[in-house]
Amino acid sequence: MKKKVLVARPTFPDVIERLKQYFDVEVNPGDVLPQAEFQRRIADKDGVFAAGELVGEKELAGAPNLKVVANMAVGYNNFDMHAFDAHGVLGTNTPNVLNETTADFGWALMMAAARRVTESEHFLRAGKWQKWSFDSFLGGDVYGSTLGVIGMGRIGQALARRATGFDMRVIYHNRSRVAPEIESKLNAEYASKEELLKRADHVVLVLPYTKENHHTIGAKEIALMKPTATLTNIARGGIVDDVALIQALRENRIAAAGLDVFEGEPNFNPDFLVLDNVVLTPHIASATEATRRAMANLAADNLIAGLGEGPRAGNPPNPINPDVLKK
């Protein structure tokens, strides 16, 4: 008998067909499953193709056959990895295939925030543009300014590479310093978080979400930033204290923000909607067809191999907790 797999959210039909070559596949054709329904559906499954579903102790305890949960994402803060280890379940993710696409989008958000693109477009669409004025929508320069990257992983490094074409100074903060040859190649200078926030003209967040990183940027950190600075978040909701950011934007204590992620998404604080100095997008930094296809196929590769099938049987490309494979 084929092993049973749940595809928890719709994905590309050809990816589904790949999975059906190996498994008995149940596909959720609609929106995100309520948590209780998700728990019910995985109860008899051997594997799950996930895209952000919460998987923890309760879910794993109720799914005794479950061996692999493949996340179609780089981040896996939706997984309780202690529970995964305790139940001998493998978690996987999809790193690397979205680095450049996500960096492109982060750059676009930063530029849009700095140059007041969204605000000026709304002004034009509302029929308010009646004349040219020397002081209309004066924004901040990107070229020749200082970029502060918090989280100097693959995507952070991709952003730093883009900065070289804009003749920017690059400072970064990370849990640990990157290798000296990477600093040299990117012309990047390590700084404490406090120093980075004080010096940077444009701060971009690309660090993973963990309990330790919750509200990495809050009222105290925002108070360190220049009043002309921008803040861009393409990492995860919860890294920024949204209430504190809204207050700072409302009071013009920083110039602008570009946000692709939010606390509690897809719900988010509606106070953002009345602010002119923020660019808002619905978690789409990796949203090109080529990249999303690459992510879906990599998640499928992980699931197929993790469940002992295909050319890489037993050796999935991206295990998060590889020690369970040894048990």
Rank of each mutant, 00 (worst) to 15 (best):
V55Y: 00
N28T: 08
A103W: 04
R41E: 06
D104G: 02
F23P: 09
A61Q: 09
A61H: 05
G75L: 02
E37P: 05
V27C: 15
D141K: 15
A112M: 11
M110G: 08
K58N: 09
Q157P: 05
R116V: 03
I150A: 10
P95S: 06
G75V: 04
G140S: 15
V55D: 07
T94R: 07
A63P: 03
G88W: 01
G75F: 02
A73P: 13
G148N: 01
T146I: 08
T118V: 15
G148H: 03
D141I: 12
K131E: 10
A114T: 07
P34T: 04
I16K: 09
E100G: 06
E121F: 11
R40V: 05
H87D: 02
R115L: 04
D80F: 07
L33M: 15
G156K: 01
I42F: 06
M72T: 12
V97D: 11
N93H: 11
V149I: 13
E119F: 10
I155Q: 09
I155A: 14
V74L: 04
Y22E: 07
T118D: 14
G75Q: 00
T101I: 12
N65W: 06
A113Y: 00
V117E: 04
K20G: 03
T101C: 08
Y22H: 14
A50L: 06
M72E: 13
M152A: 13
L98Y: 13
T92F: 03
L159P: 13
T94S: 09
V48S: 03
E57N: 07
K131N: 07
G62K: 08
F134Q: 14
L109P: 02
H122E: 13
G153C: 05
A63T: 04
Q35E: 13
L147Y: 01
L90D: 00
W129L: 07
G151S: 04
A63G: 05
A43L: 03
K67Q: 12
E119T: 05
E119C: 08
P64F: 06
V68S: 01
Q130P: 01
K67C: 00
G47D: 09
W132L: 14
N77G: 13
L54A: 12
P95D: 09
K58T: 12
A73I: 07
R116W: 06
L66E: 06
Q35D: 13
A70P: 08
V74H: 07
N28H: 08
L138S: 09
D31M: 13
A70M: 05
P95Q: 01
Q39K: 11
A50C: 10
G30Q: 14
L66N: 00
A61P: 02
A86G: 02
Q157D: 07
A36Q: 14
T102Y: 04
D44Q: 11
G140R: 15
H82Q: 12
M110H: 01
L90F: 02
Q130V: 11
P13W: 07
G127P: 04
W129Y: 05
S120V: 10
V74Q: 01
D135T: 08
A83Y: 01
N77Q: 11
F79I: 05
G106W: 08
T92I: 00
T92R: 01
S133I: 10
D135I: 10
F49A: 07
G153E: 06
N99T: 15
M72A: 15
H87L: 01
N78V: 03
F123W: 10
D135Y: 12
